[in-house]
Design a protein around this nucleic acid. Sequence first.
DNA 1: TTGAAAGCGCTAACAC
DNA 2: GTGTTAGCGCTTTCAA
Lengths: 349, 349
Amino acid sequence: MEDHEGRGSSAEGLSAGRETVARRPVTLADVAREARVGESTVSRVLRSHGSFSERTRAQVEAAVARLGYVPNRIAGTLASTGSRLIGIVIPSLSNIVFPDLLRGATGALDAEGFQSVIAVTDYDEEREEALVASLLSWRPAGLIVTGLEHTPGTVRRLTASGVRVAELLDIDGPGLDIVVGYSNRSAGETSARYLVARGYRRIAYLGHDLTRDRRAGKRYAGFRAALAEAGLPLHAEERIAAPSSVEAGRNGLAALLGRAPDCDAVYFSNDDMALGGYFHCLAAGLTVPDRLALFGYNGLDVGRLMPQPLTTIRTPRVEAGATAARLLCNDAPATVVDLGFELITGATA
Amino acid sequence: MEDHEGRGSSAEGLSAGRETVARRPVTLADVAREARVGESTVSRVLRSHGSFSERTRAQVEAAVARLGYVPNRIAGTLASTGSRLIGIVIPSLSNIVFPDLLRGATGALDAEGFQSVIAVTDYDEEREEALVASLLSWRPAGLIVTGLEHTPGTVRRLTASGVRVAELLDIDGPGLDIVVGYSNRSAGETSARYLVARGYRRIAYLGHDLTRDRRAGKRYAGFRAALAEAGLPLHAEERIAAPSSVEAGRNGLAALLGRAPDCDAVYFSNDDMALGGYFHCLAAGLTVPDRLALFGYNGLDVGRLMPQPLTTIRTPRVEAGATAARLLCNDAPATVVDLGFELITGATA
DNA sequence: TTGAAAGCGCTAACAC
DNA sequence: GTGTTAGCGCTTTCAA
């Protein structure tokens, strides 16, 4: 049903609303003329850099206001050295983790007076290479990328550019410059040990496309390794050949239980998947955690608010974005920042 | 609990990993010299614009490859007219609606060879003004902003700049240039009529901060108007003085029912709130929809996957982002595009 | 088909 | 404290 009048696109030329005269934009030279001072004086006043009299400042500001001058940062950047732009490359916008990262980064960035150009790879490393190349052509002060795995071409461009780089959300491996995140492998291990300690023995894994999401792959590896250490096999597993989603979690758990009905716990590749799994349990009348225990990853708000709070691992992704942004803006030395993670004991495992 | 070794930040100077030599970046002039042609020739070849021999093209490309030349778009933009940059201003990254919008926009944008600079206002119109001013200084080809309500200062800057503007996610009011979205007011009306038609009579509203989220305010107004038309009062209402969230929905519903236990239906300001409300019902043992019906807004995936699918309205926000981006890139005439919305009849109302 | 040269709007020396 | 000037790296006439 759709009761909304006028669906579809209706074009109405609002020519009255738009300026047709192509005025030449106001430049710094115009301001200088108007204020009867030199261009460099205007520049100094505008950036409050160097010295000038109070009187001059007033004149310049009056002229700026009268003319409605808007500085041209393109020109400013070209003339000066650095660009006050940071490029951010993330794999997806559909998983709230990345908007969170972005939120941390943009927050810190504009506290420092920087702006961000963003690019989305869809978990495609070839695309990442193209996007990095494209971002680099804006001569950004720095680049924030996700993860430590990149094509050789990406690495070459990155190092050749001399631009500062921060790699985020993973510290399991060598980085190029600044690395900010936490150990996914260790998170996987922690999850397995927790389930084992709780007495679960027929533990299954439900995940999404691990070849594209490298960090999920590292958690999986850590999880399996810790199970093995405890002398347990992975009782069953299901991989959805798609990005993680609530839907994949719900349908995936149904499929998994179809093949291995006797699992007593499931480790999900993340909270979205786990939420879907929880919905399946509710719909199918499976008691959580007695009949089946559920364990997620990320510590999303929604997990905390389920009728039974989700047992999961909270990751400081907003902080990771903010930390990386701050380090880049201040041109900090190359470093690895391990933000750690936190096990959240809920009621589902 | 935190079993991860090495929490906290550990700095390790990886000086070996970084280039210390401050090489001058390769410029177009270097390529010209290397290829033994003029600069303008290189420029033409690189943008495949104008004419040049096959032989020249090969020489230039070889030189580019040999030197690892990366064009400088800052310089390119300054020298030419247009900037192939689109500024995007959204109120939040916490509500998945805006990442969705962003996803639509960035997808279309890079199909057109444009890049996006984003800014987040946190639902603050003063901040929007500052961010618009800041984005404008990059001389973008266009700006995408959210909603139709802006401070006079924002409007002045926008119109004075001569830059194309697309206002998104709302069509209830006059726009400045391009407007792409749907009627929030009408969505509110549709929701009310649906609940009334289903026989609910003691209908309540649970919302978040409506003075900041103008679109939620318009839905609320439409909702109330349609109830009044049906001769019904709003049975009760609760407003959380915070952004919408699952938590606000869950706690808010508990509060609302505390004061008005006899409601038979609740209209939520959006799906996040409704999901929280649903969780409250599950936790409190309230049968949905018999004891209490729930109605949301946005049509998020998660709503479709709840044990009982959420009754809601689906909004084409990805399409809105994509449509706006496409119109801006192609410098389309001012227009209003009504994308409509769709009522999703779930099992909660 | 190609090259020389004049900017684009600003910043940063460097004189005054 | 302030103005003059030479670029920043590219695009774009305009001749050749």
